[in-house]
Amino acid sequence: MHSIKNLLYNIADDLLIMGHRHSEWTGLGPILEEDISFSSLAQDKIGLAYQIYKILNETEKEDLPDRIAFLRNESQYRCCQFVELPNGEYDFSLIRHFLFDHAMDLRFRMFGKSNYQPLSFLSRKTAGEMKYHILHADIWIKQLGNNNEISHVRMQKAIEVAFPYSLGMFETFPFEKELIELGIYQGEQEIKISWLEKISMILKEANFNLPDPEKIKPVFGGRTGNHTGFLKPLLEEMNEVYSSDPETEW
């Protein structure tokens, strides 16, 4: 089953790069509790990416997870550009975490019904993690939306910067139609519709405005290997030690 690989690479690469960005908050969080939270988010994202690379390796006969993650160059990566962007300040990182995790949660709920067993099995394991990520994001969004004017303005601006990129999470890719027909999942558009509904509701509660998705040009390219200039240095840093001797154990 060749086409499933595309989907698996998209999702795992999104998770790995997102986790990598979250881990960059170590030591820098606005309060210690958030430092700790972003570390947990990072561990869960990277851990889940590893599980998907493992499916690619064990079921789809791709290379070993470490080699997939640490030896590919940026044009071989299939993550969306949204996750590549630098962390910036806490406002952007938080809104990205909110937009990303709601999409990932809905995606994995959908995978729960997939007839591709490794994925449906994995989604049962991740449901418990996703719940907390969303709880965390929602509480903070509501707190920063309703508390004072500075935080409200900063967050609203961050939403406007992040939103066009976040639509890139739902970029179509080769064989998507085939996967829908095979009952692997219901496709990117379906996830996007549920996602828009969900995030609109929460953002409204927090007094934020979500830009009209019909009037926004989504930032695509990641699923075909076209990335921002931020991915290459990120991968070079990530691979620095591993690629110095990939044949040995570290």
Binding site: E24, T26, L32, I36, S39, Q43, I46, Y50, F70, M238
Partner: peptide
């Protein structure tokens, strides 16, 4: 953390450093 070689080392190091911040707390 961002340069740890391989999943095992990377995940362990994030968790370890997270513990240290938790000790601070």
């Amino acid at each position: 953390i961002t340069r740890a070689p391989g999943f095992k080392r990377k995940l362990a190091l994030i968790a370890k450093v997270q513990d240290e911040i938790g000790h601070g707390q």
